[in-house]
């Protein structure tokens, strides 16, 4: 395989990060740009170049594609992304702190026994906490995507999820987010500050998003299916009518010439 073929294959693999419809439309020209910019003898994409392609591909996949006119929905989607970001940061900080758990608790005035520390650092418990923390991130991103596409069910489901989050808020405030299978005394101080802060922040993001989703301007964007169909049928009937009229006009225009 020549250097060029090798490089082209690597670029094609990177383009796999793009959504299919975008790749079908722009893949060949992007590849042409990448190959044109590559000096001879280059065999593999650079790090910055790869990062740029992956980042753009991921962004295009997540992009809500809400038209600029639907400003309230765009804002709601941004709040959902903010919610996902806070949840992610929460998870990252949680992971960063797990190694240091004994020291951190000592600062806060808790003395953990060696048994408690080892219980907290049990890989199963950490995995469980991570998975539990990934669920809200996934939900945020999913809701952002589907509401951004104008799916009315996603608006309803977002609202239900927000209601559930509100119900669990009262139980969360005195407790950390990761209230899993730890011994009760330790559980209280597992994520002492961050848990409630993240919960309150994400709740606020959710509140803002839901409020925006039910604004009259948003409702115009989320047309219920029945409305769309009725409108569609009306449009089709109008179109047929226009087509018939046009046909009639053409027919009449032909008549005198033949006579």
């Amino acid at each position: 395989m020549t250097d060029q073929e090798h490089l082209e294959r690597a670029y094609r693999r990177l383009l796999g990060w793009y959504p299919r419809e975008f790749r079908d439309e722009h893949g060949p020209e992007i590849l042409a740009v990448l190959m044109a910019g590559a000096p001879g003898g280059k065999r593999r994409p650079g790090l910055a170049e790869s990062t740029d392609l992956i980042r753009s591909g991921v962004w295009l996949r997540l992009r809500p594609g809400v038209p600029r006119s639907a400003r309230t929905v765009r804002a709601a989607v941004r709040f959902m992304y903010a919610g996902a970001a806070v949840s992610t940061v929460n998870l990252v900080i949680f992971l960063a702190l797990t190694g240091d758990i004994g020291a951190r608790h000592a600062i806060l005035g808790y003395r953990l026994t060696a048994a408690q520390v080892s219980q907290l650092l049990n890989p199963l418990a950490i995995t469980e906490a991570v998975v539990l923390a990934l669920v809200p991130v996934a939900l945020w991103l999913w809701m952002a995507r589907e509401t951004g596409r104008g799916r009315n069910w996603a608006r309803g489901l977002s609202t239900v999820l927000f209601a559930l989050a509100t119900l669990s808020l009262s139980s969360v405030i005195p407790q950390p987010v990761f209230n899993i299978t730890f011994v009760p005394a330790v559980r209280l101080s597992f994520v002492p500050l961050l848990g409630p802060a993240a919960t309150v922040l994400t709740w606020l993001a959710g509140a803002a998003a839901v409020w925006l989703l039910w604004r009259p301007a948003s409702t115009a964007f989320f047309r219920p299916p029945g409305y769309t169909q009725a409108r569609h049928r009306a449009q089709m009937a109008e179109f047929d009518h226009q087509a018939q009229m046009a046909e009639l006009v053409r027919f009449r225009a032909r008549l005198p010439r033949r006579v």
Binding site: F22, H26, A48
Partner: peptide, 16 residues
């Protein structure tokens, strides 16, 4: 400009 950035911008400019 990198190719990824360029085509994201072109896509946005096109939709606008």
């Amino acid at each position: 400009l990198r190719a990824g950035t360029l085509y994201m911008a072109l896509d946005r400019l096109r939709s606008d």
